[in-house]
């Protein structure tokens, strides 16, 4: 009956809650670090269209760390690429630090990626130029920023030191181990001191020690620099480390975990996605009756009239029911 909260906590039924999620206003004078408003993305291929995002509403506050969870093909990576300004939405808006990405031209987007976003791709090797040294990769990442070479070198040395690769500065990236490559890729993503770090499966293909190191580095960036972090992950350790989780299912925000609590999220059209654990109660195609409750809504499965007795009732607490 309950959805396990990321991080291993086993929430009780009372903690399964629903939150209305429709681009909530930011606190006065403080823009959201990330705000997606009814974000839709459709991939078009010859002869077919695939809706990867079907109206995502999401806000992330500055300095917050968010893990995007969900099954493969749910649209997590697509959402991440939107946050990095790599894709143009089919519909909806993406706002990062108060800037509408849809309104930015190519040049402005490039500057945005340079100064405000650090992106860590899924495979460590994809983040690096294998023929460049570790130092060279960091210099390459900073090249478009208008800084002196000396300043770039200082920054690179500092980052290498922070990710524990000071001794590997001259080694070619292609010859580093997987863990080293991922740490270097993280350093590269942080090279231009971005306000938003986007990471796609930052610990995949890494051994536990390397994965822990990477998680620690991400947390460190968040605590020491105030970097907002959004990470796509399947790794419970990462999800636990980041605190807030957003579960994407079928291109929508299906659930959210916060402070150990797991909530289903009510979409702007009133839809909500029941946790998978409840699918035995509400198999696809089943009918349900929704009844207003003082603090929410009760859902009752209604079986079609027939020789059998009406079915069991199942209920979800309304907003605030679990609080």
């Amino acid at each position: 009956m309950t959805q396990p909260a990321p991080g291993g906590a086993q929430p009780s039924a009372s903690r399964i809650s629903a939150r209305p999620r429709s681009a909530a206003p930011a606190p006065a004078g403080q823009p959201f670090a990330v705000r997606c408003d009814n974000l839709v993305h459709v991939y078009r291929t010859p002869g077919s269209e695939v809706a990867a995002l079907r109206g995502v509403d999401l806000t992330v506050r500055p300095g917050e760390m968010v893990a995007l969870l969900g099954p493969s093909g749910a649209g997590k990576t697509t959402l991440l690429w939107h946050l990095a300004g790599l894709l143009r939405p089919t519909a909806g808006r993406v706002e990062i630090n108060g800037r509408q990405l849809t309104e930015l031209g190519t040049g402005a987007l490039a500057r945005f990626r340079l100064t405000e976003v650090g992106l860590l791709l899924q495979n460590p090797g994809r983040n690096l130029l294998p023929y460049q040294s570790a130092l060279g990769n960091l210099m390459f990442a900073q090249a478009p920023a208008r800084r002196s070479v000396a300043a770039r070198r200082r920054r690179a040395a500092e980052l290498l030191d922070r990710v524990g690769l000071a001794g590997a500065a001259r080694r070619r990236a292609g010859r580093l181990s997987g863990g080293e490559q991922q740490r270097l890729a993280l350093a590269v993503a942080l090279a231009n001191e971005p306000g938003l770090l986007l990471a796609d499966e930052p610990t995949t293909q890494l051994d536990p020690v390397s994965a822990a190191a990477v998680i620690e580095l991400i947390r460190d960036a968040n605590t020491s620099l105030g970097t907002t972090v959004v990470a796509v992950t399947h790794d419970p350790a990462v999800a636990a480390a980041l605190g807030r989780t957003i579960t994407i299912r079928d291109g929508r925000v299906g659930a959210e975990g916060l402070d150990g609590q797991e909530y289903v999220v009510v979409g702007r059209d009133g839809t909500l996605q029941l946790p998978a654990e409840l699918s035995d109660l509400f198999p696809p195609g089943s009918l349900a009756r929704a009844e207003r409750h003082e603090h929410g809504v009760f859902l009752h499965r209604v079986d079609p009239p027939g020789p059998q007795d009406p079915g069991d009732q199942a209920g979800l607490p309304g907003p605030g029911a679990g609080r």
């Binding site: 790599l86 500057r111 340079l114 478009p144």
Partner: peptide
Amino acid sequence: GPEVALAKMRGRGRWQ
């Protein structure tokens, strides 16, 4: 292609 994509991802402008 992937390297060029990396360059663009890292915020390089058109001419760069």
